Amino acid sequence: MTKRTFRITVRGSFDALTDGQRAALQAEAAEHDLLQARFTEEGHLSYDLAARPFFTFRFLEHGEAEEDVVAASVRAETAAELWLTDRGYGYKGLKSQAQDMSLAAVGPRQKQEARRKG
C-alpha cells in the first residue's frame, strides 16, 4: 500500500484566560504567528490573540488507507486538547477538518512543475 499524507486542522477559541495566561501567550506570539503556520507531525499552533481569541493547530499525519483519516483526526484533536489542558488554557468550540492529500486537486503550478520533471 502507498503511504497517504493527511493534513488535519483543529480550530477553537481560548476561553476564560487569566491575565497571566494571556500575557504568556502574548510573549510567545512570534512563535505562533499566522504567517509562520505550517503542518507538522507534532502540531503547529497559530493565533493572533491581540486580534481575536481563536487558535488553529495544524497536524501532519500519515496512513495507508483513506479510512485512516478518521483515526488521524481523533489523534490530532486529542493532541490539541492535551496541549491546552497541560498549560491550563480554557478553550471551547474545538473542531477538526482533515484533508487526504492523495485526493487533493492538482493546481496549475504543480502541473507545470510535473511537466518540467517529466
Rank of each mutant, 00 (worst) to 15 (best):
E28Q: 14
S96Y: 02
Q36A: 15
K95D: 13
L94D: 00
F14R: 01
A105C: 07
Q110I: 02
T9C: 06
Y91H: 12
G88R: 10
T18E: 09
G88Q: 06
L84P: 00
R11Q: 11
V10P: 00
H62Y: 14
R38V: 15
F39A: 13
S96N: 12
A105D: 15
E66S: 13
G118Q: 10
D33V: 10
I8A: 00
F14M: 03
G93A: 11
S73F: 02
A105L: 11
T78S: 09
G118D: 04
Q97I: 06
H62C: 11
H62D: 14
Q110D: 10
P108G: 10
I8G: 00
A80S: 12
Q26T: 08
L45T: 09
Q112N: 05
A104R: 05
T78P: 00
F14G: 01
R75A: 14
A76D: 03
A79F: 01
A76V: 03
D33I: 08
R58G: 14
V106I: 13
H44C: 10
R58D: 13
A80N: 00
P108E: 09
E61I: 02
S73P: 01
K111V: 07
K117M: 02
T5N: 06
K3G: 02
G63K: 04
A80G: 05
E113G: 07
D48S: 10
G20M: 02
Q21A: 06
E77H: 03
T9L: 09
G93V: 04
G90K: 03
G43E: 11
Q36N: 15
K95L: 12
Q97Y: 10
F6Q: 00
F14E: 02
E41L: 06
E64G: 10
G90P: 00
A27Q: 11
K111G: 02
L35S: 15
L49Y: 10
L103H: 07
F54Y: 15
T40V: 14
L45S: 06
A30N: 12
S102L: 05
L34E: 15
Q36P: 02
V74Y: 13
E28I: 04
R75I: 07
G90R: 07
E67F: 08
F54G: 08
A51D: 15
K95Y: 09
A37N: 11
E28S: 14
A27H: 09
F55R: 01
R22P: 00
Q112V: 03
Q110F: 01
K117Y: 03
S96V: 01
V69L: 12
V10H: 00
A24H: 07
R52T: 09
Q21G: 03
F14D: 01
A16S: 09
Q112S: 10
I8E: 00
L103C: 08
E77Q: 13
K117N: 05
A72M: 08
R75S: 11
L49K: 06
R52K: 11
H62I: 09
F39H: 15
M101D: 13
F55C: 07
G43W: 04
A50D: 14
L34Q: 14
K111N: 08
R38Q: 14
F57N: 02
D48Y: 09
R38K: 11
S96M: 06
F57R: 01
